[in-house]
Each structure stands twice: as structure tokens, then as C-alpha cells.
Design a protein around this nucleic acid. Structure first.
Lengths: 102, 102
DNA sequence: TCGATTCTTGGCGATATAGCCAAACGATGC
DNA sequence: GCATCGTTTGGCTATATCGCCAAGAATCGA
């Protein structure tokens, strides 16, 4: 109903876009996929991704700031887990989009 | 199972991320929301969004290239419609993420 | 054919993102 | 205290994105 020139509407769509933006990276999608199975520490994810640990840490910060994952520091390790499992439902639809493109 | 260092796995997550990336912008989410009601031409969307028409046209190109919307040129106008309605289910989950951050 | 309308494309500057290395931080163990 | 391990942060360069303006392409009416 309301146009995007409406400030409240604009803010709402900006918030939504921020969540999707946080997910819109191969490594971060991969992280969510792993976390759907069990919690992981940064080290584990770094090995699976094959990038510098500082890079992985920053990806995790993006997901955490978006509210998608939660972190739990136990000893020297920080364990990350999926906070909002419904994001996994995205995958089904995304596959639909990809197949529709042939 | 497979790490992201595996090339096929990497390509798969890159494709998925590309779809989310195409959606991850306030104006583009707004466009999807409008198209969920009915098809729109570029002009209509431009008025609702309040940006330059060239900007809106480029946003539509992003959605089209991602396979999310389809275009139909009739006369001088190009009508856009939602090709993969399941993307709308994203909104529910995104709201869940946002509320979890409250 | 001419002009008007609709949309797309090219190009530009400003801003944001991704990756690495290096340094800092916090917890653990000697 | 000091070294070590796991993680985060700062800084840097390279690359990508966003928005506008201007120009091009396509369609229609006069």
C-alpha cells in the first residue's frame, strides 16, 4: 500500500534487506548450513571454509549482528549456533529460483 | 558434509548466495512486495519508489537476471511480474529474525 | 517523418564489501 | 609473570554496488 517514499515503510524494507544481505555470501550460507547440524567453533568453520580465520570471524560477526546466529564463549573457544532455524527454509525456494533459470 | 574448498560445493553456495544477493536491497524487496499483488510496469514502480527511473530499471534487471521476476514488453511499456512466488515466504522468517533482535 | 513516451545502457563518483596480514585481546597453563 | 592458544579487530588494497545524469533504442501518435 504505502510507497517506499514513506519513511516508516522505507525503514522496514531496509531492515529486511539487511537480514538478507547478511546471508547473501557463499561462506555465510555455508556456515548456516553447517550450524543447522550442530554448533561449531570458529576454528572448525575455518578449516571447512579454507579461508583466513580473520575472514571467517568477520563473516560470523556479520551473521551475529544480523541476529541470525548466537555465540557462546566457553573457555578459549567461541561456539556459534543457529538462532533462527527458519532461515534454512530459504534454501528450498532458492533452489526453485535456480532451476527456473535452467 | 563437503567442505567449501570442494569446487562443486563452492559453486552451489555461490549460486544460492547470488539469488539472495539479488533480493538483498530495500528497493528490490519493495518491488517483490508490489509484484506479489499484481504485475507492474517500470513507470509505476518508479513512482512508488521515488528514485530515478534508470535506477529502478537496473534494480529490475538484477531481479530478472536472478530469475526471480519476468518481463513482458507490451507496447511501450515493460510489465514485470513475480516468477517465483515462494520468495515471499522469506518475509515471515526475516521478521522473526528482526524480532529476535528487538 | 517528427516528437513524445517508455525503458535500457553507459559512465561517473561515492560508498561498501571481501580478503589477507599483523596486532591486540582474553583465557589457560606452566 | 610469561608463553600459548583461539578469536577479534585494525588496516590495507582490490573489487563491487548504488545512485544520478546523459545518451541510446524502441514504440506510438500526429
Amino acid at each position: 500500500m504505502l510507497p517506499l517514499t514513506d519513511l516508516r515503510t522505507k525503514a522496514m524494507f531496509a531492515s529486511r534487506a539487511a537480514v538478507l544481505k547478511a546471508m547473501a555470501h557463499p561462506s555465510r550460507l555455508f556456515i548456516l548450513d553447517r550450524l543447522s547440524q550442530r554448533e561449531h567453533c570458529v576454528q572448525e568453520l575455518t578449516e571447512l571454509i579454507g579461508a583466513d580465520i580473520s575472514t571467517v570471524s568477520k563473516h560470523l560477526a556479520v551473521l551475529r549482528n544480523a541476529g541470525i546466529v548466537s555465540d557462546d564463549k566457553r573457555g578459549q573457544q567461541v561456539w556459534y549456533s543457529l538462532r533462527v532455524p527458519c532461515v534454512l527454509r530459504f534454501f528450498d525456494c532458492v533452489e526453485t529460483v535456480l532451476q527456473g533459470r535452467g
